[in-house]
């Protein structure tokens, strides 16, 4: 197995109200892997992803990204990751190009090259110079995907990257994620309810329910384990038996 880029051990997250959102997760994600997190609503996927993105602190356990601890070395971790939250927005009064320039300025590397890469990934043609408030939901998402991937992050973390998109935009975003991540050799962690998307994109998948991993493997392995034709049947079989 290639060198691990992300190591998660005994991860627990309990919110101040007492809700135990993540309950002892252990994971090792390899460098260059596209890893999928699937599970029902409230399973703990977004909480796990937010801890990976240094936004939430684990109650117990540890996460390291290329050896950096997400709590102790948070700035170093943030330099290695790029995070796209679910339903993320962009600054409505900025133009697409200005938004990419603003974001690129926080990362190391030649700024012009980073922004050019972002413009290529977004592929919004002349609309890259329009204000974001004039964009459709699909155009905004393409811009946000471009923002996430243009810095060639070591680990791209994406929560529901195609949620709410029409078929055309959804197809474009999925294709770009696979193309860019595989071309740059980075790692990607994707949470999604779209199991066809997960099957298309991910090398391995973890199924989370009630804060715990209940199934882990490549899509073919999982399908074989649950005698299923697709990941949806895997999901129903695993969650139903959990």
């Amino acid at each position: 197995m290639p060198h691990p880029s992300v190591l998660i051990s005994d991860l627990v997250k309990v919110y101040s109200g007492g809700q135990r959102a993540v309950d002892g997760i252990d994971l090792s994600i390899a460098e260059g892997e596209i890893f999928g997190l699937i599970g029902p609503n409230g399973a703990g996927k977004s909480t796990t992803i937010r801890m990976l993105a240094t936004l939430l602190k684990p109650t117990e356990g540890r996460i390291t990204i290329f050896g950096n601890d997400v709590v102790k070395d948070e700035i170093a971790v943030r330099g290695q990751i790029s995070y796209l939250p679910e339903d993320a927005g962009a600054y409505e009064n900025l133009k697409g190009r200005e938004y990419l320039k603003f974001m690129a300025a926080f990362y190391e590397g030649e700024q012009g090259a980073i922004v050019s890469r972002g413009i290529d990934i977004a592929d919004l043609k002349e609309r890259i110079d329009s204000q974001i408030k004039e964009y459709s939901k699909g155009m905004k998402r393409r811009l946000l995907i471009a923002r996430t991937l243009m810095t060639t992050p070591k680990v791209a973390i994406m929560d529901e990257p195609t949620a709410g998109l029409d078929v055309m935009h959804g197809h474009y975003v999925r294709a770009k994620i696979k193309e860019v991540v595989k071309a740059t050799g980075g790692t990607a962690i994707i949470s999604s309810h779209n199991l066809l998307e997960v099957e298309f994109l991910c090398d391995r998948v973890a199924l989370i329910n009630k804060g715990k991993i209940i199934a882990l493997g490549t899509p073919p392995e999982l399908k074989a384990r649950y005698s299923a034709n697709n990941l949806e049947e895997v999901f129903l079989g695993a969650v139903g038996s959990a």
């Binding site: 993105a53 943030r78 790029s82 995070y83 939250p85 962009a90 600054y91 409505e92």
Partner: peptide, 14 residues
């Protein structure tokens, strides 16, 4: 409201 805060807070700056 615009859901830009999470991205801003995940940037590599203090």
């Amino acid at each position: 409201e615009q859901k830009t805060m999470e991205v801003l807070l995940s940037l590599p700056i203090k």
